[in-house]
Design a binder for these strands. Structure first.
Lengths: 145, 145
DNA sequence: CGTATTTATTTGTATTTACAAATAAATACG
DNA sequence: CGTATTTATTTGTAAATACAAATAAATACG
């Protein structure tokens, strides 16, 4: 166990990369990708989000998101709509096909959540999640100063 | 706080993405990138690693790593050497310029570690790091079965 | 009201990345 | 020993990504 193993950003990246890779491998045969799932999951939480909101929420650069959404639209998973209140903005809406895809992937995502925290006590999971939220906020603070 | 905020892979990705972005912004003006730093940090831990070992360690696809190392070699940060014991393998070695770059970036990396865990108790940091290692192992187990 | 500035998204384009195929050396084993 | 298989890396190539510029609508404010 070298210095890397004690370095938090390293541990974070390593854990994230592993989950991402495993999950990607699993949803690809279903005609989806991790990024597509991120969009669907964010829209499941709240449909009709704007591109910018979505970008912030799922940590995907907005120019990257535009093209990701292009693809999802072509697949019929989502539909763009011009925001009625502000014509600059575009809102995204899941279609029936998108909901179908969500229904297929959701159990997989739930399984990953379980596998990831296997062997953890409730309290440890709580501390972990709280820590990750706090860590995010700490970095967010840095961004503005 | 919607369902996403309770979903561990989401929290993990979000925290990792934020640190990565902030760190990238900071090292770019110094002529480096996050990926370059990952290689340098891994070689700092142990010089003369093989490509495959490096790839595993820093979670960068080996074909991606090849081209990343191409660039680092052109910048004079590292040198490839054919492994004496096994001519299939290539070992990577930091150069003086690479060590210089490491010396410049290391304090930044250390600062990020500190900022990330600001407000955390020692115990919380311990739990967090242990959890991230365990989480990684859990996913690793899945990969083989 | 009309122009300047800000905000939201998209597009241009170069770089990064990933999967698969190619290369090359080591090992297995008939 | 020689051929088949495995292992380590690189290369081909298409897709994903990011930064900057372009577009377009809203807001500020003279």
């Amino acid at each position: 166990m070298g210095p890397l193993d004690g370095y938090l950003p390293y541990l974070l990246n390593r854990a994230g990369a592993r989950i991402a890779m495993a999950f990607s491998d699993e949803v690809r045969p279903l005609g989806s990708t991790l990024q597509i799932w991120r969009v669907l999951a964010a829209l499941r939480e709240r449909d009709g989000r704007r591109m910018g909101d979505l970008s912030e929420t799922i940590s995907i650069e907005v120019s990257t998101l535009t093209r990701l959404v292009d693809g999802m639209e072509k697949k019929g998973l989502v539909a763009r709509r011009r925001d009625a209140a502000d014509a600059r903005a575009v809102t995204l809406h899941v279609t029936p096909a998108g909901r179908r895809m969500t229904r297929i992937i959701l159990p997989i995502a739930e399984r990953y959540e379980k596998v990831a925290i296997e062997g953890f006590s409730e309290a440890e999971v709580m501390v972990l999640k709280t820590a990750l939220r706090r860590l995010f906020d700490n970095m967010d603070g840095l961004r503005k100063s």
